[in-house]
């Protein structure tokens, strides 16, 4: 049976993980490769790296990080941030990312979704959508670009449908209303999008504990849940999350027992 995926997300700046990761027993909490390996061992199903490196000149550090991760991590990972052209996509995929995530660039130039999907296959094109509830209009969300700073006038559900139609293989849906509050995902938003598109949806924004993830995966109809702080700060381990979900009857891949690697 296909399992629901648990996906830790890292913000990466100039090849380093930022936003205090406070794992115990890590030599270097800013080293993306060491963190990624740790999460793989703990049972993460995929990883997402969001590159927030501001300058183009520093982007080479991201390339190094992606290559080093691919050498040592044998679960799929996605790289987002700063990807504006199919040439950018090609670099990341060749370095070893399984998928690339696009957000603002897809809004500015929706054909980028088509050309990416045509060239590399839908399966590696993730469209990330940052959405905020429209005040006073229940059941409506507006898409924001530029890291959530600019309203676009796009309706989130309509944009999700268009992105999937253009060839996105997966949607990463972040609620700006719930993001950072650890009070749960915007289940209504997730459900509205998930029921409107034929492709998998990753829930993002607001995870405070396993019960929030369960809600996103059941009521929200999401196929995967993404979280950062609760994992990075050690509030919950991936094993704890998976045990909670399994107890609720949600199919998850069991955390592999620690043993020798071949």
């Amino acid at each position: 049976m296909l399992t629901r995926r648990i996906i830790p997300c890292f913000d990466v700046d100039r090849g380093r993980v930022v936003k205090g990761v406070s794992f115990v027993q890590l030599r270097d909490a800013g080293d993306p490769v060491e963190l990624a390996r740790r999460y793989e061992e703990e049972g993460a199903d995929e990883l997402v790296f969001l590159d927030i490196t501001a300058s183009a000149e520093d982007r080479v550090t991201t390339y190094d990080m992606v290559a080093a991760t691919a050498e040592q991590v044998f679960i799929p990972f996605t790289v987002g941030g700063g990807i504006r052209t199919t040439a950018d996509m090609k670099i990341m995929l060749e370095l070893g990312a399984e998928k690339v995530s696009i957000n603002t660039a897809a809004i500015q130039e929706p054909d980028l979704i088509n050309s990416g999907a045509d060239r590399f296959g839908s399966q590696c094109i993730v469209v990330a959508i940052d959405a905020r509830r429209v005040e006073g209009v229940p059941g409506r969300w507006e898409v924001y670009s530029h890291g959530g700073r600019m309203p676009t006038g796009l309706d989130a559900v309509e944009w999700a449908v268009e992105a999937a139609r253009r060839g996105a293989g997966e949607l990463l849906v972040t609620s700006m209303d719930t993001d950072g509050h650890q009070q749960g995902y915007d289940v209504e938003l997730l459900r509205a999008i998930s029921e409107a598109v034929p492709v998998p949806v990753i829930a993002s924004g607001g995870a405070g504990g396993p019960e929030h993830m369960a809600a996103a995966l059941t009521d929200g109809r999401a196929d995967a849940v993404l979280a950062a702080s609760i994992f990075h700060f050690g509030t919950y381990s991936i094993r704890q999350v998976k045990e909670h979900l399994a107890a609720r009857g949600i199919p998850v891949r069991p955390v592999p027992p620690a043993e020798d690697t071949p």
Binding site: M1, L2, T3, R4, R5, D45, S122, Q123, G169, E170, P198, V199, P200, R221, D223, A224, R253
Partner: peptide
């Protein structure tokens, strides 16, 4: 409810 692509761990 059957999403395509079939994506994830099975």
């Amino acid at each position: 409810g059957l999403k395509v692509p079939h994506m994830g761990w099975n």
